[in-house]
Amino acid sequence: MENEAGALSRVAGLFSARGYNIESLTVAPTEDPSLSRMTLVTRGSEEIIEQITKQLNKLIDVVKLIDLTEGAHIEREMMLVKVKAATGTEARSEINRLVEIFRGNIIDVTPSNYTIELTGTGDKLDAFIKSVGYDEILETVRSGVSGIARGEKSLSL
């Protein structure tokens, strides 16, 4: 998208005006500062996705659009999660093991909790939350999905 004020609200406005759902949305400037890259996750029948694609393409601020699910692609989401982990408890050791299994990083420590950074697909993040247990979680913040096509294919101008 053009990296213009209001571009994001045009996309968000389109979805609400036409009754489409946004599951997640991430956006940031690219290596070309005049452009922003947005990954938007939505669900719908083939017809609805076709209509969403066409309507998005109509927005003047949308420069180029691809449906990543049409081909092989990689999805990643980053999560920061604050969990209970009191010093010397079995819970703390359990969290340590889980972080290792899920290949996360503990990025902040206090006597009572850990803050963990974890990257992966949405499913992996969900699985981590489930493994830790809802009761142990103090706070989570998720970035929403960023996506990129596999292989030679690239979305560029």
Partner: peptide, 14 residues
């Protein structure tokens, strides 16, 4: 004005 007209214009500029 840009916000309020957004859903009923082809495009708008400030």
């Amino acid at each position: 004005s840009v916000g309020i007209t957004r859903p009923c214009v082809k495009h708008n500029f400030l």
